[in-house]
Nucleic acid binder design. Sequence first.
RNA 1: GGGCCCAUGGUCUAGUGGCUAUGACGUCACCUCGACACGGUGGAAGUCGUGAGUUCGAUCCUCACUGGGCCCACCA
Length: 840
Amino acid sequence: MQLPKQYNPKESEPKWQRFWEKEKIYKFNPKSKAEVYSIDTPPPTVSGKMHLGHAFSYSQQDFVVRFQRMLGKNIFYPFGTDNNGLATERLIEKTKKISAKKMDRKEFVEICLDTLKKELVPEYVSDMKNLAISCDWDIFYTTIDSHCQKISQRSFIDLYKNNRVYKKKTPIMICPLCSTAIAQVEMEDVQKSSTLNYIKARLDSGEYLIYATTRPELIPGCVGMSINKDGTYVKAKKDDEIWIISKEALEKFKDEWSLTFKEELKGKDLVGQTVTIPLTKAKKQVTHDQESKTEYGTGIVYYCTYGGAECVEWMQRHKGIKPIHIMGIDGKYNSFAGKYQGMDSLEARKQVLIDLEEDNSLVKKEQISHVVNVHERCGTDIEYVATEQWFIKYLDLREQFLKDGAKLNWYPKHMKQRLDNWIKGLKWDWCISRQRFFGVPFPVWYCKKCNEVILPKEEDLPVDPLKDKPKIKECPKCKSNEFIPEKDILDTWATSSLTPRLAIELMPENIQKKLYPMSLRPQAHDIITFWLFNTLVKSQLHYNVNPWEDVMISGHALDPKGKKMSKSKGNVVEPQKVIEQYSADCLRFWAAGSKLGDDLPYMEKDLITGKKFITKLWNASKFAIMHLEDYKGQKPKKIEVIDRWILSKLNHIIKESTQSFTKYEYSRTKAEVENFFWHEFCDNYLEIIKDRLYNPDQRGKEQRLSAQYGLYHTLLAILKMMAPIMPNITEEIYQLYWSKHEDPKSIHISLWPKQEKSEEKAEKIGNLAVYAIQKARQAKSEQNLSLKSPLKNLIIKGKISKEDFELAKQDIISATKTGHIEYEKLKEDSKIDEEVKIEL
RNA sequence: GGGCCCAUGGUCUAGUGGCUAUGACGUCACCUCGACACGGUGGAAGUCGUGAGUUCGAUCCUCACUGGGCCCACCA
């Protein structure tokens, strides 16, 4: 058979993609009795094209899925996209140049759905297919479709009925500029310079507390003054006034403020006193708070509604305190802010500082630099405002979640710590409501009269309360017939935490039982605390069971210098271009180069190595197929010792790579097979058997058949073991020859090579032969001779018997081109195991 | 501040309580050997981050430190 001289991935890869699709190679078979292996595929957020990080982690999960498929399992490998969140909303606003705020929600949602369906999702899926991801593309969901909306809403109703959700007025983060609630993930840390203001507040005793704040403008919202009861404070004389600050603060400001020390006191002596806040003249209690530190500022802090997360927490610790809501969701101060009404924080700050100065209450302004949370989109400082929000109650279950997390099989193990860490640090219940436009609506109406919550029946889901009316005629409580729809939408995580159900419920009910809990959740480490945890929570709350058995956590793709890739840095590598230039197999080869969980810098040299590997595989296969043309799969009566040697070595590789792959250590499998193929198989084995293959007249027909046998089985096993990593080139070679002799119509549904017994004796003989051949090569190389130049004499000493040596003798002669060969058996107790002498 | 990971020839990386520490890229010399010059053979290159401990013996185990990365919290 005449094979093309070169392998052309540009032709080959699309050809096999079409083949796999047409032949339904990756199709889940609901009727099969084989063991099911189900994957909770991460639904990527479709905000543009597939990026390198996706290519990296989806390749890694695809390696293990392909391996499991080759173990003969029935693979349930769905694909979904996550489109219900903010990312999509923003992308559509940007690309379509529209504003959700300024238009009808219905209309906006229509545009989003349409763009997703026609443009974003198809392009993304096509990228995934080009990468040879082996999902069953017919099992497809997108988190905004009605199937997903239904499941998401059902989840909410279920939790509501089990008293696991509640609604509460509580502070949330808002962006005053965008006039909307935002989530933690939408925040960014920025180092900003700011002013720490020292302000004087009069105690009823006539003495003054000096407190420090970067948010003086919140003075109308002040709810309390706090100190640390265990801290040491001092009274100091300032002109004719007595100032109270912490001992540390006195050290700092003694000279600057011309203070004279008067007496020391404990923080607890201050607790319970009443203090008058300047400007507003409001009277507040001095209380203890564990977070008040004597070393910061003056050791005295005022708390407002709301200066930041710490104020929110303070309010929670001090139950009796009533918040004073001075700000609306637009960030503007309301009537509770008195003369500052209508201003935003920046304007108010200026005015308050002027007023404080006039009031003679401003002691000092200090320039500081601190970290501020800003909205990543517009850079505006985050504000906290109290609004009505829906929560899932789960803080009481933390202990249980820790135990559930421990029951998962973690790959790699240490990633579990991140989940534990997160669960232990949980302080809030899970806020699932968002004041946004594009997403899954809450399936809730309220009775206009008595505010009773009205829920739809499950069979009526999904509903959009803004469009749909409740099916019931009147409120079951007060008989009123007027209802108000809930306008909020569910947070994206409330839906994506249901991905196992979203996928499984695409199957008939009798199949669903086989699929849950799922076998594997593959994902990257950055969202363990969100996606992994949330999915665990929902599964436990709904079904009392973990959603999966194994979790496989992959790392990140980094730029060549080991830095994060980001558009703003301009160091982004586009996987589409890499595939175009090198092929999907090369990209996957690179992705297989990192240990599971490790980050991996993108290095062009690794792509080149992959390309060379493909070429080598192609050339070696070309050679093999050429010599296997007349081979009919028969087993020779006697297998030559060198052939038994390679088969025995192969067995070790099969054993190790199977073990590695079972533990999700695809990088080891790749490295082991790569090394075995290149150095053992090509460099040694192929060179040794060439003579037998080319010259059966001299070496014997049976001896040639033995070489063919070794060649056939070893290369086939190598191809199979590389197939999960490089599905295209291995399929190409398989189809050129092996598919005509083996049953499965694709290498990807062929069975993973089985480990057979190793032959220790054959290995010893073969190893000695290879050692002798290497010595001969070395001798020739040192003399700058060609490797085909003949040797005069080759004397080999070793511990194998003379008879055993005879078995490999002819192969050694032909591989070294020696004119004469001698063998001497070393004594068992000899210090050296082998020795080779060469005469050129 | 809490937690986790990493540190091995110029670069990236494998690995193990003990034999000359893996491989790739690069580099140097040679070789057109009937698959492959995107190749082959051979060579040079590493005190396995620093310090201490456990041990007969540590690159591997323990502790501390230094540097890099990640996650979480974050200071009025």
